[in-house]
Simulated scan of single mutants.
Amino acid sequence: MSTSDPHLAPDSAMHDLRARIDALDAQLIALLAERSTLIDEAARIKAREGLPARIDSRVEEVAANARRLAGPAGLDPDLAEALWRLMMEHFIAQEDRVLSAGPHD
């Protein structure tokens, strides 16, 4: 991409804003990576206790928490719930992989 592209505008407020967004994205990635590590720990506990990866009541609790926290934070609750449900499906599949692999203790 050429720096002469007016959509990039490196000397503008948009450039600074994009840098802030990129920094925030890096923080979000780090937090999601931490969540992924916690999911692996949850999967090990579930394997030990004979629990399934998907516990519907917990899925609904987490979705409701996302909605409840979103509004006061200035985020659309519908978006928060949709993102969390997508994330939970991914993490449930991650737990399933760990549970399918069998005990490692």
Score class of each variant (00 low, 15 high):
Ser4Lys: 11
Ser4Thr: 15
Pro6Gly: 04
His7Val: 01
His7Gly: 00
Leu8Met: 04
Leu8Cys: 05
His15Ser: 11
His15Phe: 07
Asp16Cys: 05
Leu17Val: 12
Arg18Asp: 09
Ala19Arg: 14
Arg20Pro: 00
Arg20Phe: 05
Arg20Ser: 05
Asp22Gly: 04
Asp25Gly: 10
Asp25His: 08
Ala26Pro: 00
Gln27His: 12
Gln27Pro: 00
Leu28Pro: 00
Ile29Ser: 06
Ala30Trp: 04
Leu31Thr: 07
Glu34Met: 08
Glu34Asn: 01
Arg35Pro: 02
Arg35Ser: 13
Arg35Tyr: 15
Ser36Glu: 15
Leu38Ser: 02
Leu38Thr: 05
Ala42Thr: 12
Ala43Trp: 09
Arg44Lys: 09
Arg44Ile: 00
Gly50Lys: 09
Gly50Arg: 09
Leu51His: 12
Pro52Arg: 01
Ile55Ala: 05
Ser57Lys: 13
Glu60Ser: 05
Val62Phe: 08
Ala63Asp: 07
Ala63Lys: 07
Ala63Cys: 12
Arg67Val: 11
Leu69Tyr: 10
Ala73Glu: 12
Pro77Phe: 08
Asp78Leu: 14
Asp78Trp: 01
Leu83Ser: 07
Trp84Asn: 10
Arg85Trp: 06
Leu86Phe: 15
Met88Ile: 07
Glu89Thr: 10
Ile92Ala: 06
Ala93Pro: 04
Gln94Pro: 00
Asp96Arg: 12
Arg97Tyr: 02
Val98Trp: 02
Leu99Gln: 01
